[in-house]
Simulated assay, not measured.
Amino acid sequence: MRLEIRHLELVVEIAEAGSLRRAAARLHLSQPAVTTQLKRIEEFVGGALFIRSADGVVPTHTGTELVRDARNLVRQFAALQRTARANAQREAGAPVKVGGIPAQQFSLLVNALTARLPRREVTSRTIRETGTLTALLASGELDIAVMRAFPGFPLTPPEGVEHRLLLREPFFIGVSRRHALADRGRVDLADLADEKWVMPDPDDSGMNEYFARVCASAGFDQRIAHLTNEAHVAFALTAEDRGICLLYPIGTARDGLAMLSLAGTPLHRELVLAWRTDSPLATLVDELCADVRREYLALVEAAPFYRKWWHGGGAGFALP
């Protein structure tokens, strides 16, 4: 024979009951069955585990040590069963809760999860604030999220949350088609020293501080004339030559704008996948990252300006 979890459970029950009769009752077995099983266990370990008396049983030295270790293993096995059942229930029925910044990678992640887990509902919500996304992951309100990070402002995931870099995405610059630089296609950041900027409101990601630092390192102070979180407002202001704006390389129509890339890619963001380690999704991270990257590359190919940047050396910068 070999020791199994049921043997350990029997030994623990005998020690806790203090007699073979009481242990048999607790285990819903006959006393002879308990006695026979105990003898087989003692033969296997090579010595007595209990001293029998008229008052019951007392563990021997060997029995005391075995009971101690067996009790720990039984508890661990019970915890393992609870975790496995909870994960199975979550896999079978509970919705996958996805969060993230409003970016292409977010929708691609939702698509990837829907394809990978066709029998599970996928729910999602977009959230700009890094702190809110982190808190929702920590609390279990989200299973997985797409987050952003900027150089000098790293993410600090809480315990139980891991993260992985998906890709680095460049910022391009939008200018009015009437702008003197509109036909250049590519400029140095220093060429924008005299420009007014349209920027989103500062938030806890550090993006605005990051932009200011990079502009300062290029030799000028960034002059922000307009603050808005609405892309259509930023584009309208830029199209009327009220300022220049940042552009993500893949996005909605930008009528009236010309797109510029920056030499050396001084402005970029990191797109990061973050997930709870106790989520069943943790085992799918490699596949999900591959799915998102593959679909993202298809979007790159469909965006002429970005495609040119990507194949002109940008791919080596973008992909970790």
Rank of each mutant, 00 (worst) to 15 (best):
107 S>E: 06
76 Q>D: 05
131 G>A: 13
159 E>A: 15
305 F>L: 05
186 R>F: 05
171 F>P: 00
86 A>Q: 09
139 S>W: 10
91 E>I: 08
39 K>T: 09
179 H>E: 13
59 P>I: 05
164 R>W: 03
133 L>S: 04
230 E>Y: 09
217 S>W: 06
28 H>M: 06
45 V>E: 03
155 L>T: 03
227 L>G: 00
52 R>K: 15
96 V>M: 07
91 E>G: 01
13 E>R: 05
186 R>C: 15
72 N>R: 14
17 A>W: 07
111 N>L: 14
178 R>V: 08
95 P>L: 07
283 T>G: 09
14 I>R: 05
155 L>G: 02
201 D>K: 06
241 D>C: 10
230 E>L: 13
189 L>V: 08
141 E>M: 14
185 G>S: 09
144 I>L: 14
281 L>N: 06
45 V>R: 02
66 L>A: 04
146 V>C: 11
300 V>Q: 01
118 P>Y: 11
41 I>Y: 04
287 E>M: 02
182 A>F: 10
111 N>F: 10
214 V>A: 01
232 H>L: 07
235 F>C: 03
31 Q>V: 15
76 Q>R: 12
124 S>T: 10
85 R>S: 11
21 R>G: 06
267 L>K: 01
306 Y>I: 00
42 E>D: 11
20 L>C: 09
222 Q>I: 08
153 F>P: 00
204 D>Q: 06
249 P>N: 08
55 D>S: 15
20 L>I: 15
122 V>I: 15
144 I>T: 03
215 C>H: 02
79 A>K: 08
107 S>G: 04
26 R>H: 11
208 N>D: 09
298 A>C: 03
83 T>P: 00
231 A>D: 05
221 D>R: 14
81 Q>C: 03
254 R>G: 05
146 V>G: 01
258 A>I: 01
314 G>C: 10
260 L>V: 10
204 D>F: 01
314 G>H: 03
31 Q>P: 08
284 L>G: 00
281 L>Q: 06
102 P>R: 15
252 T>Q: 08
243 G>V: 05
291 D>E: 15
33 A>S: 14
102 P>S: 15
100 G>Q: 00
175 V>C: 14
240 E>L: 13
61 H>Q: 11
129 E>P: 00
158 P>H: 06
58 V>I: 12
82 R>H: 10
269 R>S: 12
215 C>A: 14
110 V>H: 09
66 L>M: 12
308 K>G: 07
317 F>P: 00
308 K>I: 06
306 Y>Q: 00
303 A>C: 11
160 G>M: 09
315 A>K: 15
4 E>D: 12
113 L>Y: 02
214 V>P: 00
42 E>C: 09
243 G>W: 01
296 Y>L: 15
177 R>Q: 15
300 V>L: 04
37 Q>I: 02
36 T>V: 11
256 G>L: 13
40 R>S: 11
317 F>Y: 11
95 P>G: 07
199 M>V: 07
233 V>S: 04
256 G>C: 13
174 G>S: 13
102 P>Q: 14
9 E>P: 06
251 G>R: 08
168 R>G: 03
90 R>E: 13
212 A>S: 14
270 E>Q: 15
